[in-house]
């Protein structure tokens, strides 16, 4: 009778997975805060699953749920646990225990290390720094790119904030293209090009014809005077290696 009132079916959902290295909630909170600041709207109210496969310590799940809630996440469950005690603790905290999906590489910890609660001091700091870098959003995000069709004239300026910039046309002398990411110019680059404006050293500049007044990556710049030595009026790419601008031919 009651079965007609409901419909029970399986479905797939995309969830964020947060990998924990240790049970230090304050470091988790700080790392999450830094991550969320990059895109507050993107993360707001997002369901999240904790991967505990790399954490061998006891975890305060209720405390963790609070930490996540304070950053606008909704804690759904845990995954990656081989330890029955941890699973039990999670269930008691009202969390689901999920089987590891394909995204999670399972590193089975050595059983002997499992029981040891005392971690040497040097290793602790190592682990703490690792927490911050380990929090990665396991979600495919398209890299942001800003496009400009047509010639950029003298006196005009484009700034691609937090993006790569693609100019389909030429950049005239006296024009300025700036991007926090890389810059591509499918035409003559006669003006100024400033890539990695917020400090990204891996940003690059590409152009079909290099005649720039100035090129700069992360504050390292060259003027046309010195640019004329290499790849002048040729298709070229500019990258930053050891704080040196490297200009090389594209063709």
């Amino acid at each position: 009778m009651a079965e007609n009132n409901i419909e029970l079916k399986g479905s797939n959902f995309t969830l964020f997975v947060l990998s924990l290295i240790n049970n230090d909630l304050s470091s988790v909170q700080q790392a999450l805060f830094d991550k969320v600041q990059q895109a507050p709207a993107f993360f707001s109210g997002a369901p999240i699953v904790i991967n505990v496969s790399q954490c061998e310590q006891e975890i305060d799940f209720l405390g963790l749920a609070e930490v996540l809630k304070s950053q606008q996440f909704v804690l759904v469950g845990i995954t990656g646990s081989q330890n029955e005690e941890i699973k039990q603790a999670a269930r008691q905290a009202g969390l689901a225990v999920l089987k590891s999906g394909p995204l999670t590489p399972i590193d089975v910890p050595a059983p002997s290390a499992n029981a040891n609660p005392v971690v040497p001091a040097a290793e602790t700091t190592h682990i703490e720094t690792k927490v911050k870098t380990q929090i990665k959003v396991q979600h495919q995000q398209t890299p942001a790119t800003q496009f400009h069709h047509g010639q950029l004239r003298s006196g005009q300026q484009i700034y691609a904030k937090d993006k790569n910039l693609v100019i389909i046309g030429s950049v005239s002398a006296g024009a300025e293209v700036i991007a926090d990411g890389s810059i591509h110019v499918y035409g003559h680059l006669r003006g100024r090009a400033i890539a990695g404006a917020k400090g990204d050293s891996s940003a690059r500049i590409f152009c079909r014809n290099l005649e720039a007044e100035l090129i700069s990556i992360n504050g390292n710049y060259k003027l046309s005077e010195t640019l004329q030595e290499t790849c002048w009026q040729q298709a070229a790419t500019v990258s930053l290696e050891n704080d040196q601008l490297i200009i090389s031919r594209l063709d």
């Binding site: 047509g150 004239r153 003298s154 006196g155 005009q156 005239s172 002398a173 006296g174 024009a175």
Partner: peptide, 13 residues
């Protein structure tokens, strides 16, 4: 020529 370039930019903006 450069000033003309500038004014063409103005025309389109």
């Amino acid at each position: 020529v450069r000033d003309s370039d500038r004014i063409i930019g103005m025309l389109s903006s």
